[in-house]
């Protein structure tokens, strides 16, 4: 039997926590091991209940999500963290990602993407809900004349994230730049790149760019 993913919820609204618990309960391998209504003693809580993934709001009384992340960063992360906030400001997202968060979800997307997010993060990937990801990508490629503004073809082989990566690589962004722009680690970028090459059976970066041109990802 596969061990269940232990989840801890932190939000100052009981109603949201109830909703989350109700939703997560529908997934068989998820287990909500606890919840907090503020940021105080959260570090100790997640250690004591051996949480795998902490789903946390930024705005909380007494101690907000940012303070908690700072504490985690300082003391060492006891678990992975997904931020669930109604904010979608890129700077804020960038800041919380810098502080060590593994995923960012807006509350708007919560119902749709939370399960997906938990799975992705659990697999060691960074996760952003769709709207946030698009926003990040747009700001990264902003004013780049080579970008094809029209949405490219539906690609069943590559994920949206992988399409973003391939586009940025084709636009001559370095791995480090991509990691900065997309708020992800260089390792993640490298993993994505390798996955793309594998999926498309490509040998090197040049063929990757050729693919991008062919599929109208760039001009």
């Amino acid at each position: 039997m596969i061990p269940k993913i232990k989840i801890h919820l932190a939000d100052d609204h009981q109603v949201l926590i109830d909703g989350m618990r109700f939703l997560l309960h529908t997934v068989s391998d998820f287990e909500v091991v606890g919840y907090s209504l503020d940021g105080r003693d959260l570090f100790d809580h997640v250690i004591s209940n051996q949480t795998d993934i902490l789903i946390m709001d930024i705005s909380m009384p007494e101690k907000d999500g940012i303070a908690v992340l700072k504490e985690f960063k300082q003391k060492g992360f006891p678990c992975k963290v997904i931020i669930l906030s109604s904010y979608d400001d890129l700077k804020l997202i960038k800041e919380v990602m810098k502080l060590g968060s593994n995923g960012y979800l807006t509350k708007k997307c919560a119902g749709e993407n939370i399960v997906e997010a938990i799975r992705a993060v659990s697999n060691g990937e960074d996760y952003f809900c769709k709207s946030v990801r698009e926003k990040i990508f747009n700001s990264a490629t902003k004013n780049n004349p080579k970008l094809n503004k029209h949405k490219p073809i539906d690609n069943s082989v590559l994920t949206d994230r992988e399409l973003e990566i391939i586009t940025l690589i084709s636009l001559e962004y370095s791995g480090k730049e991509i990691s900065e722009y997309l708020f992800i680690s260089t390792n993640t970028v490298e993993t994505h790149r390798k996955n793309i090459m594998k999926k498309l059976h490509l040998k090197n970066t040049i063929s990757l760019v050729k693919y991008a041109l062919k599929n109208n990802l760039i001009k």
Binding site: H13, V15, L16, G19, G111
Partner: peptide
């Protein structure tokens, strides 16, 4: 701002959560 952000948006997202559960079920 706090009221909108904390209360209204929390209520809206919980409503969304419940609907999602319903849709999944």
């Amino acid at each position: 701002a706090t009221f909108l952000h904390d209360n209204i948006s929390a209520l809206l997202s919980s409503a969304g959560l419940h609907l999602n559960v319903f849709a999944t079920n």
